[in-house]
Amino acid sequence: MKRALAIMVGAALILLLATLTLVVMPYLQMSAEQVPPDLKPYTEQQQRGRQVYIANGCVYCHSQQPRDPSFAPGDKDRGWGRPSVPGDYAYDEPHLLGTMRTGPDLFNIGARQPSIDWQLMHLYNPRAIIKGSIMPSYPFLFRHVEEPAEGDKVVNIPPPYGPETGKIVATEDALALAEYMLALDHTYPAPTLPKKPPNSDEPKENRAP
């Protein structure tokens, strides 16, 4: 039993060491990091949109973390933005950094596609906008009505993607998600980056969806 205990205690100690280096120290360092002054907290609606993003697992195909151009030049050249810094995520709970780019990075999608109509149409059916996209469509975020009521947000879907008759209107969830997309705009300068990002934060000509 003594030897068995020794193994288990040894194993636990090693994990403790790793917890110190990989959990505690980064937490101390990163939570002391300066929050960029231009970063705005999410509104209630954007936060709700963020929950819709989580619930429907957008993170499994989209990252939110452009890399440094000196390391991976494609990220900036595609118009995905300057490298992100810990402070950019100050209001993100939980984080949504992502590890796949089956679709493009979304850290600055709000700057690249600032129109809410574009966002809604794209959510209803991505192929209505981008030929050959493999992103799923999200019809369940929309309602099909014969006659839109007062205050309904109508989304005009180009044929043949829309319904034969009636209109497509966005649900609260769809509107919130679209607002969250527009909030993903981190084109402000990051004070903690060593050098100033070049001021060409405009969406690139290269039209990555």
Partner: peptide, 13 residues
């Protein structure tokens, strides 16, 4: 317990 970017390190740890 772990917000923002430090949440990512805990996640992948």
């Amino acid at each position: 317990a772990f917000p923002g970017a430090s949440g990512a390190t805990v996640n992948w740890w």
